[in-house]
Simulated scan of single mutants.
Amino acid sequence: MAHRPNSPVTIRSMTEGDADAVRQVERAAFAARWKPEQSAHAERPPRTRANVLIRLRKDPDGCFVAQVGSEMVGIVFSRTWGSVGWCGSLAVHPDWQGQGSGWQLLHASLAYLRADPRRVVGLETGAGEARNVGLYLRAGLVPCPITLHLARELGGDAEPATLPLWSAARAEVRSQWLEGLREASGTVIPGLDYGKEIESARREALGDTCVALEGGRAVGFGVATVVSPFEGWGAEAAIVQALLLDQRYVSEARLSGLLAGVEAIARRAGCRRLQLVVSAGRRWTVDRLLRRGYRLERVGLQMIHGDGPALTFDPDGVDCSRWAG
């Protein structure tokens, strides 16, 4: 990629026609930070084209690219879950880092996310990425508790999974469940809505969702995707996109049931490992996950925009979700 210092950068909306260029820019941007010892792969592969398009379809108005002339030099995705919105991934090609395009992309995403003043707005970055943390601090983001990226090997005996699956339910039942799950999510953060992740997993055939019921009403769920976002990785690991329990129904038995459900989804797809992310502030959940055999793989840092609503963490709450793309 030719580097032309001081060339004007244009920020525009991402389109489906950008997908291949987005994949290459992101791969180049993160290649230097790839740690082979944390993966069976020596190099970071590009995202699949399908993954880029799925992410774009979730929030098309919040995805942007930075362009110099006809060259794409940076990208950013945004994601909204009702009253919660996250910026990322944000990537700038190495030849153009330090030239201001990352700053412009960040502000484009934040402006989109903060259009709703009731929304908690933030992102996740590497806990040791001082340069990135400094950029985000200057943009008004403040650090929150660290995030724990955990994984469990799925070999050995499996706990029976008894929870119903989204894919097996009739449309009218799914509609009733979704109403209950929006209420359940609202007990964690008012207005939080993971329905987009549940529906995307079904519509795009990415995985499935197990649902915890109480008196016929949905009070918790776990979404597990079994299709790798990266080229050539196959079904090596399933990912929990979101797992939540209504604050009024938190119990060891219900959490165990949800974990057994997402682990079963992963096993049925032939995945050998299951990965999930939880805030270190959710101490009750962290303790149960470690007891179940989940092990820490890496640590992330959540940062929230200081001018918006605060994000609080009930130490006894259950909300495991991936804040980073």
Rank of each mutant, 00 (worst) to 15 (best):
V219N: 10
L110P: 00
K35R: 15
T209M: 04
T285V: 02
W177T: 03
W103T: 03
R174H: 08
P190M: 08
G62A: 03
S70M: 10
V299H: 06
R273N: 10
R282S: 06
G300N: 05
A50F: 03
G257A: 13
A212C: 13
V278D: 01
A169F: 01
V278C: 07
G17L: 02
V286A: 04
A269M: 05
G186S: 14
I198M: 15
M1E: 04
E26M: 11
P164M: 04
R152Y: 15
M14K: 00
T48C: 01
W166C: 08
L163R: 11
V318Q: 01
M14Q: 00
S89G: 08
L137R: 14
P36N: 07
G293N: 12
E252D: 14
S78Q: 02
L296G: 02
L255A: 05
W177V: 05
E297S: 12
G180Q: 08
E199D: 10
D193E: 07
V73H: 03
C210A: 11
L274M: 14
G308K: 06
P8F: 07
S89P: 15
E16G: 05
E263I: 11
A205C: 10
P60T: 00
G191F: 11
P36C: 11
P160N: 10
Q241A: 10
P36W: 03
M1C: 05
E37Y: 11
A218D: 10
Y294I: 06
H3F: 07
P160K: 13
I75T: 07
G85W: 00
V318S: 02
E214M: 13
D208L: 01
G261E: 07
A115M: 09
H149A: 09
D314C: 04
G306C: 15
D287R: 14
W96G: 00
F313A: 05
L106N: 02
L163N: 09
R268H: 11
G126F: 14
E37H: 14
V227T: 04
G270Y: 01
L276A: 09
L150E: 12
G195F: 06
F313Q: 04
T10M: 05
L148G: 03
H93D: 01
L135Y: 11
G195L: 06
W86Q: 00
L259D: 01
Q176C: 11
E37S: 15
A310V: 10
A184M: 07
S175V: 15
T285N: 02
R4Q: 09
